[in-house]
Nucleic acid binder design. Structure first.
Lengths: 241, 241
DNA sequence: CTGTTTTGTATCAAACTGTCGCAAGCCCCG
DNA sequence: CGGGGCTTGCGACAGTTTGATACAAAACAG
């Protein structure tokens, strides 16, 4: 596997959450944690994940409800955890669309094995243009054709984008007005974690700005948030294909 | 799923085997049974299956051994059954490549749910060998007749494809919008692994582009993913035969 | 206003890709 | 059976793209 799989661990117990994340990271994966459904939604919106490990028993929105919601909105694989060894509960979870189910207390090695089994199935099938494949998006005075990866200006000028620029722009267009940290952007564009002094994203922002900003000196479209990251400072609408 | 999934049930107990097959058939699947590893091999050779339900404890070749063999020879999903509830056994099965594991005695409803969960993942990526046989596919402004191996343009022009070009194009058409690495493409088109500096796929992509792209200088249909591979940047629809 | 941290961008080396040309292999046909 | 034409794999080479480093400019803290 060239890039590490990214796992989102959702559990209300901090100790379980952190231990699990640490164990996954020790075994060649990237892990992010969320304490409840709300935090999970934020994380999903902000980053790209390959699988969600979801505790059924949580205060706030129930794990089963969350699972149904995830299934309705996308295809991200879900592995459910529960303190109950109740069979009915297990079946309901699977029928709601979970990909697997594990009863607590569990052996972390088994969890890892199950995660790998699911990823083996789901992994190789990654769509290319993200959720935007085949669409045409309009923002500011630009039109982005996600198939041809070209930007067309109001005045008819065609600006070609490199692969990295396209992925960066796409990350923004999927989350207009949302502030994304360098880490998140690096995750979204190349699926890797940032190194200590990583100016990669700064550079790509700079290059992208040079192509799409009216005046790259005073950026309009991509805003800098000091100490925070960047955001797309305009709305995006989809053009009927 | 348009056609019923076809399940192969491998268990040495006739009563379990038959009851399971009947239950699966009552729930919208096709089921075939085999009493041991030898019978399973015969069945796999004779028909196309979507999943194998495999008992671990069998006279003759052991279920774990069978699982390892299945995994080595292909990608068909495997769900293991066992009388033991031993955790180690379960983990070994998963690490050998089983997609899931269920301890006897089990609730058939849970088995069905797990089968569906696996198929949901494995389903979209159907085995390639001639999945397109006898069909006519339309994409962009082209029509590909997979039987006659001819490519016809909107304007009526007939473009002949070489064997390698046809296999490459087919690989893309079976997985529109999915990024395929050079390794995967080489595997799909000629079944071999890439060498260190292997420009074979680059060349074939170049040749294919010259035939199907409007402007081979600025490819529209086959997109390059820097450091990743290539993808078909358009949808594919099947034309009624 | 001064020192520190963060950001923007130029520059460079390395990695990656597109394409050309050649040679070996294959097929068809005379 | 031999020859010509096509197909295919491969090395070579030039042009892009990319990440890292370096340093100046900008933003912030007191």
């Amino acid at each position: 596997m060239t890039t590490q799989p990214h796992i989102l661990v959702v559990d209300d117990h901090r100790d379980i959450r952190d231990a699990l994340a640490k164990y996954l990271e020790k075994n060649g994966m990237r892990a992010t944690t969320a304490a409840n459904a709300v935090a999970m939604d934020a994380a999903l919106k902000a980053g790209r994940f390959d699988l969600v490990v979801l505790d059924v028993m949580m205060p706030g929105e129930d794990g089963l409800s969350v699972c149904r919601r995830l299934r309705a909105n996308g295809t991200i694989p879900v592995l459910m955890l529960t303190a109950l060894s109740d069979e009915t509960d297990r079946i309901v979870g699977l029928e709601l669309g979970a990909d697997d189910y594990l009863a607590k207390p569990f052996n972390p090695r088994e969890l890892l094995a199950r995660i790998k089994a699911i990823l083996r199935r789901a992994g190789p099938a990654m769509p290319s243009g993200g959720a935007l494949a085949g669409r045409v998006l309009a923002f500011d005075r630009w039109l982005l054709d996600t198939d041809r990866r070209t930007l067309t200006c109001d005045d008819g000028a065609d600006v070609p984008l490199t692969s990295a620029e396209f992925r960066l722009l796409t990350a923004f267009l999927e989350r207009p007005r949302f502030v994304l940290s360098r880490n998140q952007l690096l995750d979204l564009t190349s699926g890797r974690a940032a190194q200590v002094f990583d100016r990669t994203i700064d550079n790509q922002i700079s290059r992208l700005r040079r192509k799409i900003e009216r005046d790259p000196t005073k950026p309009d479209l991509i805003a800098t948030h000091w100490g925070g990251g960047y955001s797309l400072a305009t709305d995006v609408r989809e053009v009927k294909p």
